[in-house]
């Protein structure tokens, strides 16, 4: 089988083939490299190089655990969960070393984000991606995760439920609370959306 053959398969079928064929896994890496890189950067305050290290760890972990992938679930949710756990774990280690204080606002990082951020529209119909990112970083981890997944990664509640391993209702509640917190934090830090 060639790469072209693999590329016609769905992620889930590809994951099943990849259990026996490492090249098929390569196609999955291709498909998820950019979205996961973006997700890691959005969720954390890591530099691109640090995020790349985490991303490599994510794919290696996915490879090792591929036999445990439940094909009744979306592959995307499964690998996002691995990325989520790896990022949060690394971010906590980073924070415990006092990393948060040393971290400066990274404009380069912000610039690397796509322009399609519509969270402000979702929240108050105003667009200011930089402000959004600043406010998101002020939120507690659980709210930050759901906001990034819902509005930046544009995941459905069902996907959020699978990624964060929470009930569907809880995902919806968390998003709603996160939106409220978002507005409160924005007001608190005098961040206005133009």
């Amino acid at each position: 089988m060639t790469d072209i053959d693999f590329s016609q398969l769905s992620d889930e079928d590809l994951a099943l083939v990849a259990r026996e064929n490492v090249d098929a896994f390569g196609i999955l890496v291709d498909r998820y490299e950019k979205p996961l890189m973006r997700y890691i950067l959005r969720l954390s305050k890591f530099s691109k190089a640090e995020a790349e290290e985490i991303l490599q760890e994510v794919f290696l972990k996915a490879w090792k655990n591929l036999q445990g992938f439940d094909s009744s679930l979306r592959f995307g949710s499964w690998i996002y969960r691995i990325a989520h756990n790896a990022t949060i774990s690394e971010f906590r280690k980073y924070k415990s070393r006092g990393g948060e204080e040393r971290m400066e606002w990274n404009d380069e990082l912000y610039e690397s984000l796509p322009d399609s951020i519509d969270l402000p529209r979702e929240i108050n119909e105003k667009v200011n991606a930089k402000g959004v990112r600043k406010v998101i970083e002020l939120l507690p981890e659980k709210y930050r995760s759901v906001l990034v997944l819902r509005f930046l990664e544009e995941k459905s509640y069902d996907e959020i439920s699978d990624i964060l391993h929470i009930p569907l209702g809880t995902a919806a509640t968390l998003v709603s609370r996160a939106k409220k917190q978002f507005l409160e934090k924005a007001k608190e830090h005098s961040i206005h959306f133009s």
Partner: peptide, 12 residues
Amino acid sequence: MSTFSKDIIGKI
């Protein structure tokens, strides 16, 4: 395949 995925597959 991107360089990144080639690296991953190569490592595996």
